[in-house]
Computed example of a mutant assay.
Amino acid sequence: MTSPTIGHLRVDGATLHYEVRGEGPLLLLIPGGTGGAASFDGVAGHLATGYTVASYDPRGLSRSPLDDPEAEQRVERHADDAFRLLALLSPDAPARVAGCSSGAIVALHLLTTHPERIERVVAHEPPVVEVLPDAAEHRALLARVRDTFHREGLMPAAAVFAAGLRRPADAPKAAELPPELPPEAAARVQRTMADMPYFLGRIVPSFMAYTPDVDRLRALSDRLILAAGADSMGELPYRPAAFLAERFGTPLVHFPGGHTGLSTHPAEFGERLRKVLDA
């Protein structure tokens, strides 16, 4: 895979690390969780044969430091960061955008606030649980995660969170690195573990409390592709995408794997994403 061109963009309150590959119309990839730009390494090369592919570490992750480490994190500010990247990398033409998990929440807000800059959005399992009829139950989950984090620390809170998503096996098991990992992979795991307190303590509570502008999204649904993992049907992150697709009368597009299909099935995930973007 071709090495990316690395850049840094100064935004309000942070400096963003971003990576660019390929040529063609811009495709901005917005990562979820703690993976950062590296979470798209398995698909970026394939997509770069027809697109200028850009991804980045969201503000507050290891390579995109905050000016104030205690600053409140909001979906709106993260979406403005994505908008700044669009303005930098594709100033004269609208772009395609794909986001996963918390990155898909950012993509939804970006579409509602800057539709003139967006040609198409793929939102893979955005956990916008406030749109669900049982949203109160998920607020209670977030409260349990917060309380466990403060009382017992990171790993117990991560276990509570994973159980609430109905994927307890996905919770991190240990901070130690397997000795057989190659150096680049080991560095990614180290960054992931280092960023977990920020993600679980600052991103999850704010992002999962966010309520999208559903009426605005419905009006823009001709350029919105709601996606979910073929193996995660019925799990919490799957449900908002399915709910919104039904409400808008649009298809729910299934991708290989579950919520983390980008990591577990990168080749198939990238091929599916390419077909959806090119349709």
Rank of each mutant, 00 (worst) to 15 (best):
T2L: 14
S3T: 15
P4G: 09
G7W: 05
H8A: 04
V11F: 00
D12I: 03
G13V: 02
T15A: 00
E19L: 06
R21Q: 11
L27H: 02
L28E: 01
G32Y: 02
T34A: 15
G36K: 01
A37K: 02
A38T: 11
A38P: 10
G42E: 12
G45S: 13
A48Q: 04
T49G: 15
V53S: 07
R63E: 03
R63S: 10
S64D: 06
D68N: 09
A71P: 00
D81G: 11
F83A: 15
L85I: 13
L88R: 13
L89Y: 06
P91R: 10
A95F: 00
V97W: 01
L111A: 09
T112Q: 11
T113I: 00
I118Y: 06
E119Q: 12
V122K: 02
L132F: 11
P133G: 07
H138K: 02
A140I: 03
L141N: 03
A143W: 04
R146I: 02
H150I: 08
H150T: 13
G153D: 04
L154C: 13
A157G: 05
V160K: 05
L165R: 13
A169Y: 12
P172L: 12
E176P: 00
L177N: 07
P183W: 04
Q190A: 15
F199N: 11
F199T: 10
F199Q: 12
G201I: 08
P205N: 11
A209L: 03
D213W: 01
D215V: 02
R216D: 04
R223K: 15
I225F: 06
I225E: 04
A228D: 03
M233L: 13
P237W: 05
A241P: 10
A241K: 05
F248T: 03
F255S: 11
F255H: 12
G257T: 12
G257C: 11
S263Y: 12
H265P: 01
E268H: 05
R272V: 07
V276F: 04
